[in-house]
Design a protein around this nucleic acid. Structure first.
Lengths: 147, 147
DNA sequence: TTGATTTGTTAGCTATATCTAACATTATAT
DNA sequence: ATATAATGTTAGATATAGCTAACAAATCAA
Protein backbone atom coordinates (compact mmCIF):
# COMPACT_ATOMS: atom_id res chain seq x y z
CA UNK A 1 0.00 0.00 0.00
CA UNK A 2 3.09 2.20 0.25
CA UNK A 3 3.67 4.56 -2.61
CA UNK A 4 6.83 4.59 -4.63
CA UNK A 5 8.94 7.73 -4.78
CA UNK A 6 7.66 8.33 -8.24
CA UNK A 7 4.03 8.06 -7.22
CA UNK A 8 4.59 10.43 -4.31
CA UNK A 9 6.17 12.92 -6.64
CA UNK A 10 3.21 12.86 -8.98
CA UNK A 11 0.71 13.05 -6.16
CA UNK A 12 2.52 16.00 -4.65
CA UNK A 13 2.56 17.80 -7.97
CA UNK A 14 -1.14 17.24 -8.50
CA UNK A 15 -1.88 18.56 -5.03
CA UNK A 16 0.19 21.66 -5.55
CA UNK A 17 -1.24 22.38 -8.97
CA UNK A 18 -4.76 21.97 -7.55
CA UNK A 19 -4.09 24.81 -5.18
CA UNK A 20 -2.99 27.19 -7.89
CA UNK A 21 -5.00 26.26 -10.95
CA UNK A 22 -8.54 25.13 -11.38
CA UNK A 23 -7.63 22.73 -14.14
CA UNK A 24 -4.80 20.28 -14.17
CA UNK A 25 -3.54 18.99 -17.46
CA UNK A 26 -1.37 16.00 -18.18
CA UNK A 27 0.92 18.22 -20.20
CA UNK A 28 1.33 20.57 -17.29
CA UNK A 29 2.39 17.82 -14.94
CA UNK A 30 4.76 16.53 -17.58
CA UNK A 31 6.39 19.92 -17.98
CA UNK A 32 6.63 20.52 -14.29
CA UNK A 33 8.35 17.22 -13.67
CA UNK A 34 10.33 17.07 -16.89
CA UNK A 35 8.70 13.83 -17.95
CA UNK A 36 6.86 12.84 -21.10
CA UNK A 37 3.08 12.88 -21.36
CA UNK A 38 3.17 9.13 -21.76
CA UNK A 39 4.93 8.72 -18.46
CA UNK A 40 2.47 10.99 -16.74
CA UNK A 41 -0.31 8.93 -18.19
CA UNK A 42 1.16 5.79 -16.72
CA UNK A 43 1.59 7.49 -13.40
CA UNK A 44 -1.93 8.84 -13.11
CA UNK A 45 -3.31 5.45 -14.01
CA UNK A 46 -1.33 3.89 -11.23
CA UNK A 47 -2.55 6.56 -8.79
CA UNK A 48 -6.07 5.86 -9.96
CA UNK A 49 -5.59 2.20 -9.29
CA UNK A 50 -4.53 3.09 -5.77
CA UNK A 51 -7.73 5.12 -5.49
CA UNK A 52 -5.82 8.29 -4.77
CA UNK A 53 -7.25 10.16 -7.72
CA UNK A 54 -10.35 9.96 -9.87
CA UNK A 55 -9.71 10.10 -13.54
CA UNK A 56 -11.40 9.12 -16.75
CA UNK A 57 -9.67 9.36 -20.12
CA UNK A 58 -9.59 12.96 -21.35
CA UNK A 59 -11.23 14.02 -18.11
CA UNK A 60 -10.37 15.96 -15.00
CA UNK A 61 -7.87 14.84 -12.41
CA UNK A 62 -9.45 14.90 -8.97
CA UNK A 63 -7.87 13.89 -5.70
CA UNK A 64 -9.89 11.45 -3.63
CA UNK A 65 -10.22 12.06 0.07
CA UNK A 66 -7.43 9.63 0.75
CA UNK A 67 -5.30 11.07 -2.02
CA UNK A 68 -5.76 14.56 -0.68
CA UNK A 69 -4.74 13.62 2.83
CA UNK A 70 -1.73 11.67 1.64
CA UNK A 71 -0.66 14.51 -0.61
CA UNK A 72 -1.00 16.99 2.21
CA UNK A 73 1.29 14.87 4.29
CA UNK A 74 3.86 14.58 1.53
CA UNK A 75 3.89 18.31 0.98
CA UNK A 76 4.20 18.93 4.68
CA UNK A 77 7.08 16.49 4.99
CA UNK A 78 8.72 18.33 2.15
CA UNK A 79 8.30 21.63 3.94
CA UNK A 80 9.72 20.31 7.17
CA UNK A 81 12.89 19.12 5.52
CA UNK A 82 13.20 22.25 3.44
CA UNK A 83 12.81 24.51 6.43
CA UNK A 84 15.56 22.68 8.22
CA UNK A 85 17.90 22.75 5.26
CA UNK A 86 17.41 26.44 4.65
CA UNK A 87 17.06 27.89 8.12
CA UNK A 88 19.29 25.65 10.16
CA UNK A 89 21.91 24.52 7.69
CA UNK A 90 21.82 27.53 5.45
CA UNK A 91 21.20 25.77 2.17
CA UNK A 92 19.97 27.68 -0.80
CA UNK A 93 16.31 27.56 -1.69
CA UNK A 94 16.99 25.71 -4.90
CA UNK A 95 19.22 23.11 -3.33
CA UNK A 96 16.84 22.60 -0.45
CA UNK A 97 13.95 22.05 -2.82
CA UNK A 98 15.79 19.34 -4.69
CA UNK A 99 17.08 17.53 -1.69
CA UNK A 100 13.93 17.82 0.38
CA UNK A 101 12.01 16.14 -2.39
CA UNK A 102 14.24 13.12 -2.24
CA UNK A 103 14.70 13.01 1.50
CA UNK A 104 11.11 13.31 2.62
CA UNK A 105 10.15 10.07 0.98
CA UNK A 106 12.45 8.07 3.18
CA UNK A 107 11.89 9.64 6.57
CA UNK A 108 9.55 8.04 9.05
CA UNK A 109 6.74 10.06 10.55
CA UNK A 110 8.59 9.99 13.82
CA UNK A 111 11.74 11.47 12.38
CA UNK A 112 9.77 14.10 10.52
CA UNK A 113 8.05 15.11 13.74
CA UNK A 114 11.35 15.26 15.56
CA UNK A 115 12.89 17.31 12.80
CA UNK A 116 9.96 19.71 12.73
CA UNK A 117 10.00 20.21 16.47
CA UNK A 118 13.74 20.65 16.56
CA UNK A 119 13.70 23.22 13.79
CA UNK A 120 10.79 25.13 15.28
CA UNK A 121 12.48 25.24 18.62
CA UNK A 122 15.82 26.35 17.21
CA UNK A 123 14.15 29.08 15.24
CA UNK A 124 12.36 30.26 18.34
CA UNK A 125 9.00 29.59 16.77
CA UNK A 126 8.02 27.55 19.77
CA UNK A 127 9.26 27.78 23.28
CA UNK A 128 10.21 24.24 24.06
CA UNK A 129 8.57 21.51 22.10
CA UNK A 130 5.68 22.41 19.87
CA UNK A 131 4.43 18.85 19.77
CA UNK A 132 4.14 18.96 16.02
CA UNK A 133 2.57 15.83 14.57
CA UNK A 134 2.35 15.35 10.86
CA UNK A 135 -0.63 13.03 11.25
CA UNK A 136 -2.66 15.09 13.61
CA UNK A 137 -3.10 18.62 14.64
CA UNK A 138 -0.21 20.89 14.21
CA UNK A 139 0.75 23.00 17.16
CA UNK A 140 -1.18 26.26 17.25
CA UNK A 141 1.90 28.38 16.96
CA UNK A 142 3.18 26.44 14.00
CA UNK A 143 -0.18 26.60 12.29
CA UNK A 144 -0.43 30.33 12.85
CA UNK A 145 2.98 30.94 11.35
CA UNK A 146 2.44 28.26 8.74
CA UNK A 147 5.66 26.41 9.44
CA UNK B 1 28.98 7.66 -13.99
CA UNK B 2 26.76 8.17 -10.94
CA UNK B 3 25.90 5.09 -8.97
CA UNK B 4 22.36 4.00 -8.31
CA UNK B 5 21.16 3.67 -4.73
CA UNK B 6 21.40 -0.05 -5.07
CA UNK B 7 24.99 0.06 -6.27
CA UNK B 8 25.94 2.38 -3.43
CA UNK B 9 24.39 0.02 -0.96
CA UNK B 10 26.36 -2.92 -2.27
CA UNK B 11 29.59 -0.94 -2.42
CA UNK B 12 29.12 0.24 1.15
CA UNK B 13 28.51 -3.29 2.34
CA UNK B 14 31.60 -4.60 0.61
CA UNK B 15 33.67 -1.83 2.16
CA UNK B 16 32.36 -2.50 5.64
CA UNK B 17 32.82 -6.27 5.38
CA UNK B 18 36.37 -5.71 4.12
CA UNK B 19 37.19 -3.97 7.35
CA UNK B 20 35.94 -6.78 9.53
CA UNK B 21 36.61 -9.96 7.59
CA UNK B 22 39.45 -11.00 5.37
CA UNK B 23 37.18 -12.80 2.97
CA UNK B 24 33.96 -11.54 1.51
CA UNK B 25 31.47 -14.02 0.21
CA UNK B 26 28.52 -13.42 -2.05
CA UNK B 27 26.32 -15.26 0.42
CA UNK B 28 27.42 -12.99 3.22
CA UNK B 29 26.51 -9.86 1.29
CA UNK B 30 23.19 -11.44 0.40
CA UNK B 31 22.41 -12.18 4.04
CA UNK B 32 23.50 -8.80 5.23
CA UNK B 33 21.29 -7.01 2.72
CA UNK B 34 18.45 -9.50 2.71
CA UNK B 35 18.79 -10.16 -1.01
CA UNK B 36 19.28 -13.35 -2.96
CA UNK B 37 22.66 -14.55 -4.11
CA UNK B 38 21.53 -14.05 -7.68
CA UNK B 39 20.85 -10.39 -7.01
CA UNK B 40 24.22 -9.96 -5.39
CA UNK B 41 25.80 -11.56 -8.39
CA UNK B 42 24.15 -9.06 -10.69
CA UNK B 43 25.19 -6.24 -8.47
CA UNK B 44 28.84 -7.18 -8.21
CA UNK B 45 29.00 -7.59 -11.95
CA UNK B 46 27.66 -4.10 -12.41
CA UNK B 47 30.19 -2.75 -9.90
CA UNK B 48 32.90 -4.58 -11.78
CA UNK B 49 31.79 -2.97 -14.99
CA UNK B 50 32.12 0.41 -13.31
CA UNK B 51 35.65 -0.63 -12.31
CA UNK B 52 34.86 -0.21 -8.64
CA UNK B 53 35.73 -3.77 -7.75
CA UNK B 54 37.85 -6.54 -9.21
CA UNK B 55 36.16 -9.86 -9.43
CA UNK B 56 36.48 -13.09 -11.34
CA UNK B 57 33.89 -15.86 -11.09
CA UNK B 58 34.28 -17.81 -7.86
CA UNK B 59 37.07 -15.45 -6.87
CA UNK B 60 37.74 -12.78 -4.32
CA UNK B 61 35.98 -9.44 -4.25
CA UNK B 62 38.51 -6.62 -4.14
CA UNK B 63 37.83 -2.92 -4.13
CA UNK B 64 39.73 -0.92 -6.71
CA UNK B 65 41.34 2.33 -5.66
CA UNK B 66 38.38 4.25 -7.01
CA UNK B 67 35.92 1.86 -5.44
CA UNK B 68 37.60 2.17 -2.08
CA UNK B 69 37.51 5.95 -2.12
CA UNK B 70 33.92 6.06 -3.24
CA UNK B 71 32.91 3.56 -0.61
CA UNK B 72 34.70 5.53 2.09
CA UNK B 73 32.70 8.57 1.11
CA UNK B 74 29.42 6.69 1.18
CA UNK B 75 30.14 5.30 4.61
CA UNK B 76 31.13 8.69 5.88
CA UNK B 77 27.97 10.27 4.51
CA UNK B 78 26.05 7.58 6.28
CA UNK B 79 27.80 8.34 9.55
CA UNK B 80 27.15 12.05 9.27
CA UNK B 81 23.44 11.56 8.86
CA UNK B 82 23.29 8.92 11.55
CA UNK B 83 25.12 11.08 14.05
CA UNK B 84 22.68 13.89 13.45
CA UNK B 85 19.64 11.67 13.76
CA UNK B 86 20.82 10.08 16.98
CA UNK B 87 22.56 12.89 18.78
CA UNK B 88 20.58 15.89 17.68
CA UNK B 89 17.13 14.51 17.03
CA UNK B 90 17.28 11.65 19.49
CA UNK B 91 16.42 8.85 17.09
CA UNK B 92 17.10 5.29 18.02
CA UNK B 93 20.18 3.58 16.65
CA UNK B 94 18.11 1.20 14.59
CA UNK B 95 15.90 3.85 13.10
CA UNK B 96 18.85 6.10 12.36
CA UNK B 97 20.64 3.29 10.57
CA UNK B 98 17.70 2.64 8.29
CA UNK B 99 16.99 6.22 7.47
CA UNK B 100 20.59 7.31 7.11
CA UNK B 101 21.10 4.65 4.50
CA UNK B 102 18.35 6.07 2.37
CA UNK B 103 19.04 9.71 3.01
CA UNK B 104 22.74 9.81 2.38
CA UNK B 105 22.34 8.83 -1.23
CA UNK B 106 20.40 11.94 -2.04
CA UNK B 107 22.34 14.59 -0.20
CA UNK B 108 24.85 16.74 -2.01
CA UNK B 109 28.40 16.95 -0.73
CA UNK B 110 27.67 20.49 0.29
CA UNK B 111 24.69 19.57 2.42
CA UNK B 112 26.59 16.69 4.00
CA UNK B 113 29.41 19.04 4.94
CA UNK B 114 26.97 21.53 6.39
CA UNK B 115 25.21 18.82 8.33
CA UNK B 116 28.47 17.44 9.69
CA UNK B 117 29.71 20.86 10.77
CA UNK B 118 26.42 21.74 12.35
CA UNK B 119 26.25 18.51 14.29
CA UNK B 120 29.85 18.73 15.43
CA UNK B 121 29.34 22.26 16.61
CA UNK B 122 26.11 21.49 18.43
CA UNK B 123 27.73 18.57 20.15
CA UNK B 124 30.61 20.74 21.22
CA UNK B 125 33.06 18.63 19.31
CA UNK B 126 34.37 21.68 17.58
CA UNK B 127 34.34 25.23 18.77
CA UNK B 128 32.84 27.05 15.84
CA UNK B 129 33.09 25.44 12.46
CA UNK B 130 35.29 22.42 12.07
CA UNK B 131 35.54 22.87 8.33
CA UNK B 132 34.68 19.28 7.72
CA UNK B 133 34.90 18.29 4.07
CA UNK B 134 33.83 14.88 2.94
CA UNK B 135 36.13 15.06 -0.08
CA UNK B 136 39.23 16.24 1.64
CA UNK B 137 40.83 16.22 4.98
CA UNK B 138 38.60 15.99 7.91
CA UNK B 139 39.14 18.48 10.69
CA UNK B 140 41.74 17.29 13.18
CA UNK B 141 39.30 17.25 16.05
CA UNK B 142 36.75 15.25 14.12
CA UNK B 143 39.38 12.78 12.98
CA UNK B 144 40.67 12.32 16.52
CA UNK B 145 37.20 11.62 17.84
CA UNK B 146 36.27 9.73 14.73
CA UNK B 147 33.06 11.62 14.10
C1' DT C 1 -17.71 23.84 -39.81
C1' DT C 2 -13.79 22.13 -40.78
C1' DG C 3 -8.74 22.08 -40.59
C1' DA C 4 -4.89 22.84 -37.60
C1' DT C 5 -3.15 22.71 -33.07
C1' DT C 6 -3.07 21.08 -28.66
C1' DT C 7 -3.80 17.59 -25.56
C1' DG C 8 -4.16 12.78 -24.17
C1' DT C 9 -3.54 7.68 -25.08
C1' DT C 10 -1.58 3.43 -26.57
C1' DA C 11 1.83 0.19 -28.01
C1' DG C 12 6.11 -1.30 -27.71
C1' DC C 13 10.85 -0.69 -26.31
C1' DT C 14 14.69 -0.06 -22.67
C1' DA C 15 17.00 -0.35 -18.23
C1' DT C 16 17.29 -1.39 -13.30
C1' DA C 17 16.49 -4.38 -9.69
C1' DT C 18 14.57 -7.90 -7.89
C1' DC C 19 13.10 -12.95 -7.63
C1' DT C 20 13.05 -18.40 -8.30
C1' DA C 21 14.78 -22.50 -10.02
C1' DA C 22 18.21 -25.03 -12.05
C1' DC C 23 22.83 -25.71 -12.59
C1' DA C 24 28.05 -25.40 -11.72
C1' DT C 25 31.90 -25.06 -8.80
C1' DT C 26 34.40 -25.34 -4.56
C1' DA C 27 35.02 -26.87 0.11
C1' DT C 28 34.42 -30.16 3.75
C1' DA C 29 34.11 -34.28 6.30
C1' DT C 30 34.47 -39.04 6.79
C1' DA D 1 38.77 -39.79 -2.70
C1' DT D 2 34.39 -38.98 -3.03
C1' DA D 3 29.69 -37.75 -1.49
C1' DT D 4 27.49 -33.97 0.59
C1' DA D 5 27.10 -29.38 1.72
C1' DA D 6 28.05 -24.78 0.84
C1' DT D 7 28.75 -21.36 -2.33
C1' DG D 8 28.34 -19.06 -6.80
C1' DT D 9 26.23 -18.55 -11.56
C1' DT D 10 22.87 -18.47 -15.16
C1' DA D 11 18.47 -18.22 -17.35
C1' DG D 12 14.22 -16.53 -17.34
C1' DA D 13 10.33 -14.13 -15.02
C1' DT D 14 8.27 -9.93 -12.85
C1' DA D 15 7.58 -5.05 -11.64
C1' DT D 16 8.63 -0.12 -11.90
C1' DA D 17 9.57 3.75 -14.48
C1' DG D 18 10.98 5.81 -18.02
C1' DC D 19 11.24 6.69 -23.33
C1' DT D 20 9.62 7.35 -28.58
C1' DA D 21 6.41 7.12 -32.15
C1' DA D 22 1.96 6.73 -33.79
C1' DC D 23 -2.58 7.55 -33.05
C1' DA D 24 -7.09 9.61 -31.07
C1' DA D 25 -9.79 13.19 -29.09
C1' DA D 26 -10.74 17.81 -27.98
C1' DT D 27 -10.20 22.65 -28.70
C1' DC D 28 -9.63 26.65 -31.26
C1' DA D 29 -9.49 29.77 -35.17
C1' DA D 30 -10.75 31.20 -39.69
Amino acid sequence: MDLTNSQEEYLKTIYILKNTKNEIRVTEIANKLGKTKASVNNAINSLKQEKLINYEPYGQIELTKEGESLARKIVEANDIVKLFLIEILGSTEENAENEAKAIKTVLSDDTLNKLARYTHKELGLSSLDCGYDINNQRCIECARRNV
